[in-house]
């Protein structure tokens, strides 16, 4: 029973903080609301028995990516409401377009209640032992390729960040 209430609470908070990310005027407030959204999503992971993933999520997103965002905002001195306003028509069309997308996506979920799980429920799949076995047995090549991707991203970020490229 408490799981149900926690799910409702975390869902409500996730949607509310997600909306605040988009709607708040100050970019620093947006970053902080995004951190809160990530914490609620980590709570969802814990409820879904993905404990290791929740820990990694908090470390990577709230710890690394959001610090990078805050750092760039402070560096560019964007921590004030400098954003020029879009015209009311562009705002209205953005709202209508995303609302239509929501309606289409929710409509496409109509048959989802008939999905049946073919496997017996196993509460241990989120533990690090199972995840490591899957990662290094079935996904060894993607794992190595993602290391090359990270190296390329690092080189690209350093190249772009240099003052003058010769």
């Amino acid at each position: 029973m408490i799981t149900t209430y926690l799910f409702y609470l975390l869902s409500f908070l996730a949607i509310m903080f997600g909306s605040m990310v988009v709607l708040s005027k100050n970019p620093v407030h947006s970053v902080l609301y995004l951190v809160l959204t990530f914490f609620t999503i980590a709570g969802h992971y814990v409820l879904l028995n993905a404990q290791f993933l929740a820990a990694v999520h908090v470390i990577v997103y709230a710890g690394a990516i959001m610090v990078l965002f805050l750092f760039v905002i402070m560096l560019l001195n964007l921590n004030k409401e400098t954003e020029p306003h879009k015209s009311i028509w562009l705002k209205a069309s953005a709202a209508v377009a995303s609302g239509s997308l929501l309606v289409v996506l929710v409509g496409s979920l109509k048959g989802a209640s008939t999905i049946q799980s073919t496997n017996a429920f196993n509460p241990n799949i989120g533990l690090i032992e199972n995840l490591g076995t899957t990662l290094f047995r079935d996904f060894l090549l993607p794992f190595e390729v993602s290391s090359i991707l990270l190296l390329a991203a690092m080189v690209g970020a350093v190249m772009l960040g240099k003052k003058s490229i010769k």
Binding site: L48, I115, S117, I125, L131, T134, D138
Partner: peptide, 12 residues
Amino acid sequence: FSSFLSDSKGQV
């Protein structure tokens, strides 16, 4: 979905 289907591939 990974939790629903008891398949750890989704989490990977």
